[in-house]
């Protein structure tokens, strides 16, 4: 039995320049170099990417969906952050 398991990495791929890196999935690898190589083979076998980021999963801090209320509700009643909140006469153009 191996003493240590390969850690888990999250893989982000930019599918073409101009687009952001997007989360594609995860994989196990001994280190960052191997994670990049494995990500190439696992997630971009058909030209799905031009750039890959890998980050060890343990380094990601995620919000807890059970606290979504406190976390996201404060934005819900702030309609004045949207342009449609403001009343303008119909004659006004280009605004």
């Amino acid at each position: 039995m191996s003493t240590k398991n390969w850690p888990l990495w999250e893989v982000f791929v930019r599918s073409k320049n101009g687009l952001e890196h997007r989360h594609f999935g995860s994989l196990h690898a001994a280190d960052a170099d191997m994670a990049l190589e494995n990500a190439r083979d696992v997630y971009t076998r058909r030209n799905e990417g031009v750039s890959i980021w890998v980050v060890e999963s343990k380094n990601i801090t995620a919000s807890n969906p059970q606290h979504n209320g406190e976390m996201f509700e404060p934005a819900q009643d702030k309609v004045y952050r949207h342009p449609t909140f403001y009343e303008l006469p119909d004659e006004v153009k280009y605004m």
Partner: peptide, 16 residues
Amino acid sequence: GEWVRDAAMAHAEKQQ
């Protein structure tokens, strides 16, 4: 494959 997995881990630790 166990020795390969172990060797990869040992290499990663050494590099680190």
